[in-house]
Amino acid sequence: MVWLGGVRRFGYAGFMELRVTDLACARGGLPLIEGLSFAVASGEALVLRGPNGSGKTTLLRTLAGLQPALKGEITCPPEEMAYAAHADGLKSTLTVAENLSFWAEIHGQRDITGALEAMNLTDLAGRQAQHLSAGQKRRLGLARLLVTGRWLWVLDEPTVSLDAASVALFAGVVRDHLAAGGAALLATHIDLGLPEARVLDLAPYRAELPPDLGFDEAFL
């Protein structure tokens, strides 16, 4: 863990926890999830499961502060979370190293060699992102998590387009992150190879659609 610079070498400061109480969130004005409560503490991973459309992405976006919750309480501010979604936020004309250094500098970090090594990208550092394969792009997108220096990773389908070896590599990175006192919240359909992770099924928290839903609600 020496490779990750100051934050990771000494672990994250103290015990931290994300606690969600009676959360309700909506997508496109339609309530999707209600009455959801859970907690994730330092060193823990929580895997979110649920069929397509069950609100995994909506929940993660709400936690990351990209959309407001309908009601409920989230104890951890979005500033402590590193969010990674389906889109990796890569610029195709920049090289792998340039893309990663940009996100590192945005988060006040300098050193990207550790993150490149951890996601097996060192050999590709000088290549433009447009010449990467889908799996390599994904690895670069996930390497961004390592340069944010944030303790809680909020990941939406992190393993899409990764091969088995890369999934194992990523599981190792997540495990190191947990060991350093971080935490992870993952929405995924496949088995990551993290047997210690707890699983939360979102299906029981599905919101009932109100019968008299106002028409303009959908545009809010």
Binding site: L66, P78, E79, A84, A87, S92
Partner: peptide, 14 residues
């Protein structure tokens, strides 16, 4: 917005 950078910038310290 298309490549997701805007979401990530919105969650960044800036």
């Amino acid at each position: 917005h298309e490549d997701g950078s805007l979401d990530l910038l919105a969650t960044s310290p800036i």
